[in-house]
C-alpha cells in the first residue's frame, strides 16, 4: 500500500526582506485511496505545502522529510517527483504559448509512462475524459491555458489528473473561483480518478463547499504553518458553522 509521509516539515520562502518561515513542523500521512482535506485561513501555509511537495524552487526545506513509500521525495527533481506518482493540480496554471493541449498531454503522458501511449487508445482516452469534463473538442487544439477561463483552467488540470493517473494528487484550491456547475464537474472528475485508480488525495481548500462533492476521510486544520486540529468529516461541518475564528483567537492574543 503506497503511502506519502510528511515528517516535521519546516519550509521557508525567499523574499526581498530575507528568508521567511512558513511551515513550522508539519506531520501528515496519506495512504493510497484516502482523501485528506487541508483547510485553513489565508496565509496559513496550505499552498506552500502543496508547492513543497511538488518541488517548486521558490521554497526552501529547512528540516523534516517527505517520503513516498520510503523514497526521499525531497532529493528528487520536480519531474522525478511527477514520474514517481505525485501530481499537483495548480491554483493558477500558467500559459504555455504555442504548445497545444494535445501536444502537451501526449508529451506528459510519454514522460510519465516512459513510453509513448498507443495512439488509438490514447486518442480515445483523451476524447472520453474531455467529454466527461464537458470540454469542447476544439479545446485540444488550443494552446495550454492560453485564453482559458478560470473554470476551463481547472477542468484542464483535472483532465491531466485523469489521464496521467498519478498515485497521489494534491489539489491546490481547485474549487476557488468555480461556479456550482463547474465545481460539480471538477469534483466528479476527482471522484472518477479515485474510483478508477484508487488515488490518494490531498485536497487543499479555504471553503467547505467542495467537501459536499468530494468526501474527505480526514480533515486537518492548518493554522500558522502547522496542523492545529485533526478529525473526521465532522470537523469540516463544524468549520462550516464556526469558521476559523476559534483558531485565530489564540493567535491574536499570543
Amino acid at each position: 500500500m503506497a503511502v506519502l509521509e510528511i515528517r516535521d516539515l519546516h519550509v521557508s520562502v525567499e523574499t526581498d526582506q530575507g528568508s521567511k518561515p512558513i511551515l513550522r513542523g508539519v506531520d501528515l500521512t496519506i495512504r493510497k485511496g484516502e482523501t485528506h482535506a487541508i483547510m485553513g485561513p489565508n496565509g496559513s501555509g496550505k499552498s506552500t505545502l502543496a508547492y513543497t511537495i511538488a518541488g517548486h524552487p521558490k521554497y526552501t526545506v529547512n528540516s523534516g522529510s517527505i517520503t513516498l513509500d520510503g523514497q526521499d521525495v525531497l532529493a528528487m527533481t520536480v519531474d522525478e517527483r511527477a514520474r514517481a506518482g505525485l501530481f499537483l493540480a495548480m491554483q493558477y496554471p500558467v500559459e504555455i504559448p504555442g504548445v497545444t493541449v494535445t501536444n502537451f498531454l501526449r508529451t506528459a503522458k510519454t514522460a510519465i509512462d516512459g513510453e509513448a501511449p498507443p495512439i488509438r487508445h490514447w486518442i480515445k482516452d483523451v476524447k472520453s475524459s474531455m467529454k466527461n469534463l464537458r470540454m469542447d473538442s476544439t479545446f485540444a487544439e488550443r494552446n495550454v491555458n492560453e485564453g482559458f477561463s478560470g473554470g476551463e483552467k481547472k477542468r484542464h488540470e483535472i483532465l491531466q489528473l485523469e489521464l496521467l493517473k498519478p498515485t497521489f494528487a494534491v489539489l491546490d484550491e481547485t474549487d476557488s473561483g468555480l461556479d456550482v456547475d463547474a465545481l460539480k464537474i471538477v469534483s466528479e472528475g476527482v471522484n472518477r480518478a479515485k474510483e478508477n485508480t484508487n488515488l490518494g488525495v490531498l485536497l487543499i481548500t479555504h471553503y467547505t463547499r467542495i467537501l459536499r462533492y468530494i468526501k474527505p476521510d480526514f480533515v486537518h486544520v492548518f493554522v500558522d504553518g502547522r496542523i492545529a486540529e485533526e478529525g473526521g468529516p465532522e470537523l469540516a461541518d463544524r468549520l462550516e458553522d464556526e469558521g476559523y475564528d476559534r483558531f485565530l483567537v489564540g493567535e491574536a492574543t499570543a
Binding site: 524552487p57 520536480v78 519531474d79 511527477a82 504555455i96 504559448p97 508529451t107 506528459a108 514522460a111
Partner: peptide, 27 residues
C-alpha cells in the same frame, strides 16, 4: 513558472525548455 508547470507533469527540464522555445516561436 512555465518550466515548473511542465516539469510537474513529468517532463524533464531539457525537454521542457525545448517545448517552451518551440512554443514561443510556433506562435
Amino acid at each position: 513558472e512555465q518550466l515548473f508547470y511542465l516539469q510537474a507533469r513529468g517532463i524533464t527540464e531539457e525537454e521542457a525548455r525545448r517545448l517552451v522555445v518551440r512554443g514561443f516561436l510556433t506562435e
